[in-house]
Each structure stands twice: as structure tokens, then as C-alpha cells.
Design a binder for these strands. Structure first.
Lengths: 242, 242
DNA sequence: AAACCCTAATGATCAGACCAATGAACAATA
DNA sequence: TATTGTTCATTGGTCTGATCATTAGGGTTT
């Protein structure tokens, strides 16, 4: 038997494409080409199965994939079907959450990243925030104050998430807002599990922060935020280890 | 007929949970509880169908969902099955790409977000980058120089993506590295479609940038990067509109 | 040993069925 | 007439049960 030809060099590993992936790509291709736009409705699973010459379950897996990716939403019933969305950041926040749970990101790195993102958001917001933005944030803080710490932990958590969302909106940059949600929403679980931190007044810190923001004092706002984050991080680390 | 009882107040809209979602949640719950860790192998579709008292196709949709989310990978054959991953940022970059394609994020916002993220990455890298990091980046730039602009667009694009990835790695923060990839990888498509920009020397700019980084001169590095981004953005806008 | 073959396990796909929700057209009613 | 209830076709969600292709491991032959 002859020698194995080694000099042929690097063969690329063969990767079999699954049928549903091909379907996803074709649909994404139509989106990229501009033939499909948000609001459009794809043909039904049964129709597409015929068009693609595959079984319904295969189309189904493609639909499911696109749904999880936030590209379409699926509606039952007559006039239902797969409707193209404008996109959704849920997949991003979900993945971020998974990465935390799976230990691929440490809480340390996560917190640091939050600080980084918020520094930039604050910088943008200081330039662009409108009075409406400030008022919305102020209302959010007011509602946070109203809610007692003991009960209504759920609402309090939601208000915290909303606070950061409003701040992100004030940056007037949708991409940064999405990154902000990616780095904020996973907090929900921690806040729920660890309970409230009664050792200091969150609303007070946020009000001070808002004041700096209103004065467009970037550095002071960042400093207040960093202080806030540091305390929160210490609280979380302490809770988790105990 | 009596009055409609309006004072009952806010009924919460009923949302029916689909079976596969429940399965996903249970599996994610086990991960969160620490009963499942990366490397573990889930039971086969057939087994889980029995355990969950659902059909195989339902388990399959759950598996597909977790696969798309980067939580597991599916392997065929004996000893195959769903294996828990350490997580994957592919879902994040894919979603970011979708959001761009669907017009949910403007190229303007996207570029600005890139600048924001990279500012923070540079700041971290200036503090923490090691000689190995610098050398890896330098090698990357060297290879970029070698490749002629005309041919090998593909490789050139990959090297560009790798450049940002190496930079992110130098920040020593995995969360920021993931955000960086989210905001960098979607570029691949643009670079491929628009072709190379021959009007200025990319490698030269990157070398200058690396010099600033080595001297840990944060401000200069950021300035060089911003200049680079500005030119690239102008190039992309020009190409797209023409 | 090394190459080959067989087999069980497992995801990928297929085919066909029924269920549940949805909305629109239509009928019944006040 | 305006509202309410009914019917019906459409469509995703799920089920059942089957075949195929790939994979790893064990056994057999060379």
C-alpha cells in the first residue's frame, strides 16, 4: 500500500449543513437583499415545506430558530404565521444570562463591563438627553422611593431595570441601548435571588446622579455611578459567598 | 343583563406556555442550580421525551432552542447527544447582525457604539495588556501588510476581525470581549460586500495605534482609533449610497 | 498491530394525523 | 341597527411512528 499523501496540506473539515440551516440562510438572505422587510408575513409552514421540498418539521425547526433569534414571531390561527419583526434584543440578554450561569463570564468581569458601558452611555446622555428623558428618570426614581424595601421586591427590581433602560434611551443610540440591556437584564435574577440591599439608599444615590446628569456634569455622574456599582458589587459578592 | 364588572381592574393577559419552552426552562433551571455544568451530557431525545412525558419532536424543539442559544451542542451517533457548552457568543453577534439587517440599528449608531466599546477596551488594555498581547497584535498587523489589497479579500477581512478580537483579549475582561465581538463581527459582511478601501493604509494606522498602546498612552490610542473609525465609516457610507 | 466489518445509539428528516387558537364571515338576537 | 354568538377554514403546536446517516465501540480478519 502506498504512502499517505501528506503534502496535500490542510484539508478543511467537512461540515454537513443541516436542512433547516439552509432554510434559515435563505430567509436571512431575502432579508439582507431587501426582499423581506419587518411586517411581512412568510408563507405557512405547509406552503414552505412544499416550496423547499422538505417536510413540515424541517421548516418548523427553521422557524423556531428564527423565532429564538428574534427575527420572526409565530402566530397561531387563520392569518397567523411567521411575521418578520424589527428585531429583538431578548436573544442578546438571554445569551448574556446564559454565559453568566455557565460560568463563562465572572461576576467581576460582568460588573466591570457594566461600568464601562454606563460610562459611555452617560457621556452620550450628557450631550443629548432631553427634558423628557430627565423627567422620565425622575419619575422612575420617585416610584422607587415610594415602594418600601420589604415588600414588592418584584416591582422594585423592575424599576431598577427600567432606570437603566431609561438612561440608555437618553443616549439616543439604539446600539448602545441594546448593549446596556444585555448587561443589565441579567441582573434581574441576582436582585431577585439576593433580595434588597437595605444598607444604603439607592433612590438617594440615583437622585444625586440625575442631578449631575441634568447639569451635564459627566465626571460627577460617572463617579456617582461607579460608587453605586462598587457598593452593589460588594453586596452581591457578600451575599453569594454567605 | 347585568353590568360588566369594570371594577375588577386589570386582568393580566393569558399567555400560554409552549411545551418546549417549559422544557428549556427546566433545563436552564438545572444549570442555574448547579446540577448541570459544562461538559455534561443530557439524556437522549428519546429518553427525555419519556421523562418529560412529551413527544420526541417537542424535546427536539427544546434542544434546537438551546443549541441556537449556544447552551448545548448536538452530536450525532452513538455517545452523541446534547452536550452542555461553556457558552457561545455567536448568538449575540448573530442577533446584532440581524438587528442591523432589519434596520433596527442604523449604521451610524452601530459605528458610534463601536467607538464607545473600543474606547473602554483600550482603556482596560492600556492597564493590563501583556507583551504576549502586543506581540500577537503586531503579528496580526504584519500579516495584514503582507496580503495585497486586490486578492485575498477574504483573509484580509478575517485578519481585521482578528485584530479587534486580539485587542479585546488584551482587556482581560471576557464580558467586554464578548461585547466587542458583538459589535465587530457584523462588520464581516460589510467588508465583504463593499470591498477593500484602498484610499489609505490600514496597517500603518494600526501600527501607530499599537505604538500608543505599548506606551500605554490611552488618549493617543483612542484618538488614532477614532480617526480610523471615522474614515472607515465615511468609506462605508459612501459605498452604500453609491 | 492494523485494517476492516458489524452493530447499537442517536440526531436529522420525513409522513401523516389531531388539537387549539385565531380571525373572518355569517347567523341570531336584542 | 348594533351587538352577540356560531361556524369554519387556516395555522402553529404536538403527537406517533418510521427511515436514514453518522458515530463510537467491539469484534474479526489480515
Amino acid at each position: 500500500m502506498g504512502e499517505i499523501a501528506r503534502k496535500t496540506g490542510a484539508f478543511i473539515p467537512v461540515k454537513t449543513r443541516r436542512a433547516f440551516e439552509e432554510i434559515c440562510d435563505q430567509i436571512r438572505g431575502e432579508i439582507q437583499a431587501g426582499n423581506l422587510v419587518p411586517g411581512d408575513r412568510l408563507p405557512s409552514e405547509r406552503d414552505l415545506a412544499e416550496q423547499f421540498q422538505v417536510s413540515r418539521s424541517t421548516v418548523r425547526e427553521a422557524f423556531r430558530t428564527l423565532e429564538i433569534s428574534g427575527v420572526v414571531t409565530l402566530h397561531k390561527g387563520s392569518k397567523g404565521g411567521a411575521v418578520l419583526q424589527r428585531g429583538d434584543n431578548q436573544p442578546i440578554t438571554q445569551t448574556m444570562h446564559d454565559l453568566l450561569m455557565l460560568g463563562s463570564i465572572s461576576l467581576q468581569d460582568f460588573t466591570e463591563a457594566r461600568v464601562c458601558i454606563q460610562k459611555e452611555i452617560i457621556e452620550l446622555a450628557c450631550e443629548r438627553a432631553t427634558d423628557e428623558d430627565y423627567d422620565a428618570i425622575e419619575q422612575n426614581i420617585a416610584r422607587t422611593s415610594e415602594i418600601s424595601l420589604a415588600d414588592r421586591l418584584e416591582e422594585r427590581t423592575e424599576l431598577t431595570i427600567e432606570f437603566y433602560s431609561l438612561l440608555a434611551r437618553a443616549s439616543k443610540n439604539s446600539a448602545m441601548a441594546i448593549l446596556m440591556s444585555a448587561i443589565t437584564e441579567p441582573l434581574r435574577d441576582y436582585l431577585r435571588r439576593l433580595g434588597p440591599d437595605r444598607s444604603w439608599n439607592v433612590a438617594e444615590s440615583r437622585l444625586k446622579f440625575l442631578g449631575h446628569l441634568r447639569r451635564r456634569d459627566k465626571d460627577a455622574a460617572v463617579a456617582e455611578m461607579v460608587a453605586h456599582m462598587t457598593r452593589l458589587h460588594a453586596f452581591m459578592i457578600g451575599k453569594i459567598e454567605s
